[in-house]
Nucleic acid binder design. Structure first.
Lengths: 185, 185, 185, 185
DNA sequence: TATGAATGAGGCTTCATTCAT
DNA sequence: AATGAATGAAGCCTCATTCAT
């Protein structure tokens, strides 16, 4: 049993270090050897922990999304006032652009390199979590929560492709204002 | 005399037939031989018209975006009333989801397989065209036009990843309503 | 019949223009298209006059060696005195280093790209012609003529590989002196 | 632990086995797969030890020339008498025609497939070594040493192209006699 | 468990040659 | 006769994966 725990813990460590490599270079353009070099292990070792290259990708999105949600929860968690929550969400978004970019980029890599149902599964899970958090915490309807999430996805995606032509800060502010408008009493 | 061919015209024909292949399977997962088979030419012919595999991808986004813009313009063009324009835009969006998906998927492939500046260039161009059309035709501020475009990008992207969990029609309607709200008089 | 004459004449013109291309870049590294471009004809035309790429190479050595021999003969021809002949030969060598390089380079290309017997045939022919000229004109024994020819070949070959480390002029002079020594009375 | 291998040693072994293949068939006409088959390794392994096909060629000339020089040195080394040395050299030449052919053929392949400066570098090195050995050991002037080396190169080259029309033995004997003549006391 | 040498299928690209016009 | 678009076999090289140590 302790062995098992170590194994999983080590897997997570390896995944953490993969993230930047994958989002910078892209799954399809990284070789196993590059991954191994970055993680400072041999390719053989890598294959002890992951059966295939693809499995690294798939584990990674799972791993990353779990991290993000819990971070978000811990931020929103305390407060009760909706206005405050919206403010906290806005700040959370502003401070974690990089993280969102990584998730989107991973989703893209997964989309291009895994069967559709796996992508759908993984991304639906993430999408659902965020959307239900929004709708529950901010008291917004299902459909409107979706809209906000969609906007967020579009914003990050656009920023990835052309970072200089969209102001992340401005757009997040606009979203926050709209939320305040729609959410209140 | 050799076979008479309008090189540019033929290139465009080839590109047209590439589109579905690229968006379905993805640039990285299509082989030159598959492309050739799909286009019903030999690999040699392919290289007669495109110097590398990557150049096909790059030409394709250019090609596709040019097509889309002119289509959009021709639809909006006639009318003068802003309300009508919004309605037309909404219909245009509803009828061309597939096309938008293709553009987004191409942008993704380009992002993963071309130097950043090329992606930025190509996507910025598309983004600018749509945004300026929105801001000019619908009389909306720069920043708000961006927001709508961002939303559109997010919507299509989300639909690509998980088509069953977002209603395209509903979200487009909501966007239309918001536009009517913001645009008027 | 007049057609035939034109055809052969045209072939020779084409071959002439091939020579520099082949010796500069090498048979194996020139493409048919490059040859066609250099000769300012289409690849199709090229194939009207030569059945294969290899046949160009083979025709070329023949063509070039015929040229050289007659040139040499016309120079030596007039005089009767052996000393004068040696002097003329020496001058001929000095003024035609480039030509000898081309012949050697062609021989090399032929050697690497044609069946051994063809190379042997073509080069033996050239070798024989020069050697018999030397032995007859300069009154030297068979074997010694061979030695001089061998030296000449070595000199040109060495100059091709490392032009800066051997003085062509000096070595030709030394050869001339040796000839005078050996040939006399 | 992985298979224990002395990379450099193994590289040398591979090169050794390449030599005959290259000189028989020629660099340009051997495929990577043929090389691999001949060396009884996979193409992947080949690329594990050499970055490109061309690098094999380049390493090979280096490798071969180093071998030859040391062989030559070890033969000449002991004796002090110039006459004896000339005799030894003559024997060395007679017994190693094959080796000299290989070096010349490699030089030719290199010349046709590598940048000029690389060929010049490699061949100059070989030329220099032999020539300085001749001039030092046999007490001959720089220029005359060059002449002998040139003759040797020409002899081997001629033998490669038309082995039946030149007697290697006779020509080497003549060279030896000339050396004895020139070298004395 | 860890290593990295070995494998070989399969990718992209080139180019001699053919053939419709 | 002349053109150059079309062909596809074959070349070089990459890289996920396996396996001996």
């Amino acid at each position: 049993m302790p062995k098992i725990v170590d194994r999983d813990e080590y897997r997570r460590e390896l995944l953490d270090k993969c993230l930047s490599l994958f989002s910078k270079i892209g799954y399809g353009n990284v070789t196993i050897r590059e991954i191994a070099r970055e993680l400072e292990v041999s390719t053989g070792t890598l294959y002890h922990y992951f059966p295939t290259k693809k499995s690294i990708l798939e584990s990674l999105l799972e791993h990353v999304s779990v991290q993000g949600i819990s971070k978000y929860k811990s931020i929103i968690n305390g407060s009760k006032d909706v206005k405050v929550k919206i403010e906290l969400l806005s700040n959370y978004l502003l401070e974690n652009e990089e993280y969102f970019k990584n998730v989107i980029l991973l989703a893209v890599d997964l989309f291009r390199n895994s069967p559709a149902w796996k992508v759908d599964g993984a991304f639906t899970k993430i999408s659902l979590q965020y959307r239900s958090l929004i709708s529950e915490e901010l008291q917004l309807s299902e459909e409107i929560s979706k809209s906000f999430f969609i906007f967020l996805v579009g914003l990050v995606f656009h920023r990835i492709l052309t970072p200089d032509h969209i102001s992340y800060k401005t757009q997040v502010s606009m979203m926050r204002d709209l939320m305040l408008n729609v959410a209140v009493i």
